[in-house]
Design a binder for these strands. Structure first.
Lengths: 217, 217
DNA sequence: ACCTGAACACCGTTCAAGT
DNA sequence: ACCTGAACACCGTTCAAGT
C-alpha cells in the first residue's frame, strides 16, 4: 500500500500499473495480484488511503464552516497530488475508513450549521459528490501530458478572446473576465455559493426551539 | 464521427477504441489514425459533439433559469449515454462549437438573472465545471461493469446503515436519510443550491441603476 | 504461503508497402 | 489520397511451475 501511494504520487506520466508496483517492491509484476483481487481492488484500497490522508489534514478545533472548507480543499489537493488514482476513483464508493471519516465529518459539520436532518443528508451528498467530482476532474487534467495541459489552458485565454461577437455575444463581452482566472477560483466560488445556499436554506427552515428536532408547534 | 458517436452510445462494456471504429466502418483499425492525429484528437472531436447534442436539447423560449437547468440535465444525460467518451472528456477543453455554445448559453442566462459581470464569469465557470465534473463522474460510473456498480450502490444502503454509532455518530443517526436517495437527487440539490446562491448574490450586489456597470454613487 | 515466468487478449502508435 | 498488414511497447489477467 505504501509503495502504491508512493507511485501514485509520482504524478503525471506514471500510472499505477502492476509493473510499476512490482518494480518498486523488487518483485515480478504478476505478484501484485496475489494481494489484490484485481486492478479495481488495488485502486479502491489506494483511493481510500487518499481519503484518509485528506481527512487527516483537517486541523483540530475548527468551526464547522472552516472544517468543511479545509476538507474540500484537502480532497482536491490530495487527488491532484495522486492524479492517476484520483481520476480513477472519484466515481467510486471505496467503502473504507477514509470514506466513512469524510462522510461523518461532513454530516456533523452541516448539522451544526442549522440545517434540518433531511437537508443535512441531501446537502452532504451533494457537497461530497461535487467535491469528489471536481477533484477527479482536476486529477484527470493533471494526468495529461504537459503539452496537452498547456494547449487546453491557452485556449481559455486565446480562443475565447477571439470569439466571433455576432455568434457569441456574451463570450465576446466577457472575454477579459473569462481569461482572468486562477486555479483556485472555481473551488473558491463553489464554496462561496455553497455557504450562501446553506445560509438561505437554514434561514428558511429554521426552528427556534433549542431542543433537537423540535416538533411543529 | 457518426460511427464514433454510435460506438460511444453502445455503453458500458464497449470503449471507443481504434479497433471498434475500424470494424464499424469496415476498415483496418489503423486507418483511423489517418483522420485523427491520435486518440486524444478523436476523443476531443467526439466529446465536442456530445456538447453540441446537449445544447441542442435545450428547448426554445425558456427563461434563463429553466434554460440553465435544461442544459445541466442534458449534459449529464448525454455523458451518461456515451459514458466512455464522457468520462474521458469531462476534464478537457474541447475548444469546439459545442463548448462555445454551452459557455455562451450559460453566460447569457446568468446575465439575465441580475448578476454583476464579474460574478457572471465566476459563476459560469463554477457551474460549467461543476456540471461537467458531475457528468464525468456519472459517466465514469456508467462505464463500470454492472456487478461493480451494484456493489457500490448496495454499500450506501447496507454498510452505512451498519456503521458503528460510537465511531460514526452522525452517520448512524442519519442512516435512513442517507439510504433514501434516488439518482436525480444530487443534481436536483446542486441546482437548488445554485439558485439560492445566485439569488443571494444578486440581492447583495444589485445596483438599481438601469445602465450597465453603474459606478459607485 | 508466496513468487516466477511465460502466455494470452487487448490497447495506441508507427511505418513500409500496396491501390 | 487512403488503406493494409505487420510490428512494437504497453496493459491486466491467468496459470503451471517453482521455492
Amino acid at each position: 500500500m505504501e509503495a502504491a501511494v508512493r507511485i501514485a504520487a509520482r504524478g503525471r506520466p506514471d500510472g499505477l500499473t502492476g509493473r510499476a508496483l512490482g518494480e518498486e517492491l523488487g518483485a515480478d509484476r504478476s505478484a501484485v495480484w496475489r494481494h489484490f483481487a484485481d486492478k479495481d481492488g488495488l485502486l479502491l484500497a489506494v483511493g481510500d488511503r487518499l481519503l484518509v490522508m485528506a481527512s487527516g489534514r483537517v486541523a483540530e478545533g475548527l468551526g464547522p464552516r472552516q472544517r468543511l472548507e479545509a476538507l474540500a480543499r484537502a480532497v482536491v489537493d490530495v487527488f491532484e497530488a495522486h492524479p492517476y488514482v484520483g481520476a480513477a476513483i472519484a466515481c467510486r464508493t471505496t467503502r473504507g475508513p477514509g470514506e466513512f471519516a469524510l462522510v461523518e465529518m461532513m454530516l456533523a459539520a452541516l448539522g451544526e450549521l442549522g440545517l434540518q436532518s433531511r437537508d443535512v443528508a441531501r446537502y452532504q451528498r451533494m457537497l461530497a459528490d461535487s467535491v469528489l467530482a471536481y477533484a477527479g476532474m482536476c486529477a484527470g487534467y493533471a494526468v495529461l501530458p504537459k503539452q496537452v495541459q498547456d494547449a487546453d489552458e491557452r485556449a481559455w485565454v486565446r480562443e475565447y478572446s477571439n470569439a466571433d461577437p455576432k455568434r457569441y455575444p456574451a463570450i465576446a463581452a466577457l472575454a477579459p473576465q473569462l481569461a482572468a482566472t486562477d486555479d483556485d477560483m472555481v473551488l473558491d466560488t463553489l464554496l462561496e455559493a455553497f455557504w450562501l445556499a446553506v445560509d438561505a436554506r437554514a434561514r428558511n427552515t429554521a426552528i427556534p426551539t433549542p431542543s433537537q428536532g423540535g416538533r411543529r408547534a
